[in-house]
Design a protein around this nucleic acid. Structure first.
Length: 109
DNA sequence: CTTACGGCCCTGG
DNA sequence: ACCAGGGCCGTAA
């Protein structure tokens, strides 16, 4: 079973991740693993995290709309990164309770 | 070659 | 709802 992945495949993975991420609209969010799977690389959630980390600070991509599978921000609460992401999400209408993203109406998931 | 380390995920308790 | 433990897999050292 193909354990490893070629460099070319990784390049494809990256471009797919960026492409898919660019289609995530304001008010939506997506999980790392979900993004990886949609890109055609299940089990590569952490690699998605790595890509997000490497994005230039002025990127146009909605990196802040990427959360973990529990719909939580994947940064420690005392960090700047956490604050930046949280503010962006709140400005897009999310209510964040106990570090978890919720929609306004009825506070459903 | 081998460790260590992530913007993670899933399952059990 | 919270947490620990194991698994995951590319990248850097």
């Amino acid at each position: 079973m193909g354990k490893t992945v070629t460099n070319q495949a990784m390049d494809h993975f990256k471009s797919q991740v960026f492409f898919i991420l660019s289609s995530v609209q304001k008010g939506e969010c997506i999980a790392y693993g979900e993004l990886a799977k949609l890109a055609g690389f299940p089990r590569h959630a952490r690699q998605v995290g790595s890509l997000m980390k490497k994005l230039p600070k002025d990127t146009k991509l909605p990196w802040h709309r990427v959360v973990n599978s529990q719909r939580r921000i994947s940064f420690a609460e005392n960090t700047d990164a956490y604050t930046r992401q949280r503010e962006k999400l709140e400005s897009e209408g999310w209510i964040i309770v106990g570090n978890k993203l919720m929609t306004n109406e009825r506070l459903k998931q």
